[in-house]
């Protein structure tokens, strides 16, 4: 009996180790800070709005800081814009959005584009490096930070598509997010 339990635990530990080693590239979580609210009823309305998105598994609210940690269902494609739209629909704004993504040896250079779940992610203000494991990146687009912060950021950016608000998507019709580490 004891031997059986031990075998089961060993098998489980082995499976977990293998799983973590082979973990596929995917979103782990997204941290969203909302602006323009203080009351818990307002946070509740954001929480409930986010939960209507099919790819969201769970929302953990941090009421004191009006921020939310969102985790996902693995089978549905994740769209950051849909989360921003839900927060705006609840009557508030995104003050910051940081996504944690599990990378498998992904090489990035400054001003490089990579494709994640059919969307284009344009890495800006980064040094050349290889991303491995859970890495957090911050979205640097309009509507994903405070309006006055974005204005400042846009002004001093050396990346042409940010400076001039022009499209830089390598594939027509693909949504581009500008992100930094």
């Amino acid at each position: 009996m004891k031997m059986n339990t031990l075998k089961k635990i060993t098998a489980l530990l082995f499976a977990l180790t293998v799983h973590s080693m082979l973990a596929s590239a995917q979103f782990v979580s997204v941290e969203i800070k909302a602006s323009g609210l203080t009351c818990s009823m307002c946070s509740n309305s954001i929480d409930k709005a986010l939960r209507t998105l099919p790819f969201i598994k769970d929302v953990a609210a941090h009421l004191q800081t009006t921020s939310f940690t969102v985790t996902f269902n693995t089978d549905a494609p994740i769209q950051l814009e849909d989360m921003k739209d839900k927060i705006e629909g609840a009557g508030f704004f995104v003050a910051g959005m940081t996504a944690t993504y599990h990378f498998n040896n992904q090489k990035i250079t400054n001003d490089s584009h990579i494709s994640i779940e059919k969307n284009d992610y344009h890495f800006v203000d980064v040094s050349e490096q290889i991303l491995n494991g859970d890495v957090a990146f911050k979205v640097m687009d309009k509507g994903y930070m405070l309006a006055k912060e974005y204005k400042k950021y846009k002004k001093k950016s050396s990346i042409p598509c940010i400076k001039n608000s022009t499209s830089c998507s390598p594939t027509a019709g693909t949504k581009t997010y500008h992100v930094t580490l």
Binding site: S35, G36, T38, F92, F93, A95, L146, A147, K148
Partner: peptide, 9 residues
Amino acid sequence: LSMDSEHRH
């Protein structure tokens, strides 16, 4: 009109 920032709007 909405001008929002942290702790003020």
